[in-house]
Design a protein around this nucleic acid. Structure first.
Lengths: 139, 139
DNA sequence: ATCACAAACGCAATATACTTGCAATTGAAC
DNA sequence: GTTCAATTGCAAGTATATTGCGTTTGTGAT
């Protein structure tokens, strides 16, 4: 549990979204969670009356605006985390137990060559996989 | 189309897999494709009699052995590409038209701090998103 | 305050991606 | 050739995500 919540309604408006009660609650959950969380995980944290389709649409919309961020842990489904108000970072995931740790960004956003068909890079993903210290011991 | 195909049967055995006709064909398709391809894309390239479950199981098995590699383009489904016989690399994806370009690896496999719960990193993903030159012009 | 309207919602239905169980087959090591 | 684990093929099932559409609501303009 974190204290000193930011003003989520205001934050939503800044990112071009309507500050509906559902989205405010969703942001609060993501803020408090502080690690990427799956849709299933979110559903557990949210009131059962929170419509699933609304949730998916909110996640899509807030990801598009950059307020939140989609992360792939190779678990076959997306995870989401707060993107605004945080340092850009990546994750290390334990392939044995699923433990997740933040890690600073060590990616050089590509030096594009003249031969490249790209001139603009807007974003990147980077996740590291390994074994956490507990899982090394028990292996 | 590439010529000078490697010996896929031998390659499969080297990676601890049985060299079944299906897997040899699958590898050939991945080799010739040369960009990451979706399961749907593979099904189109393969004979319709190639069973879908067999395909999924082959992809899982060959990914686990490191012969092929799973890539996430944030399209909601996995893409696969040849991993053996290639330089380690990443991709730039155009978020407008889907164009894909290989890019060399610019990721420093994380410097782990003493505070980290991790000591071993085995693997990483890294994909870049942007706009390709054609899509910039038409934007 | 209230109006107008695009954004967001809620529900039902549907689509896509992927998995499981199990009996039959087959590649490869001996 | 025999053996056996790996792989296949089919049927069924589950998880994940999307679409369509009528209703509601937040917000900016009046």
């Amino acid at each position: 549990m974190k204290s000193n919540n930011p003003d989520f309604a205001e934050l939503l408006r800044e990112y071009g979204s309507k500050a509906t009660p559902g989205r405010v609650t969703l942001l609060k959950v993501l803020w408090q969670e502080d690690k990427p969380i799956s849709v299933a995980g979110l559903k557990k944290k949210l009131d059962p009356s929170f419509d699933e389709v609304t949730l998916y649409r909110a996640l899509e919309s807030l990801t598009a605006s950059g307020l939140i961020r989609e992360v792939d842990f190779r678990h076959g489904h997306a995870h989401y985390e707060m993107n605004a108000l945080r340092e850009h970072h990546h994750h290390i995931i334990c392939t044995s137990c699923g433990r997740v740790e933040d890690t600073e960004c060590r990616v050089q956003e590509a030096k594009l060559t003249k031969a490249s068909a790209f001139r603009i890079i807007t974003d990147h993903t980077a996740e590291f996989f390994g074994l956490c210290n507990s899982c090394i011991k028990t292996a």
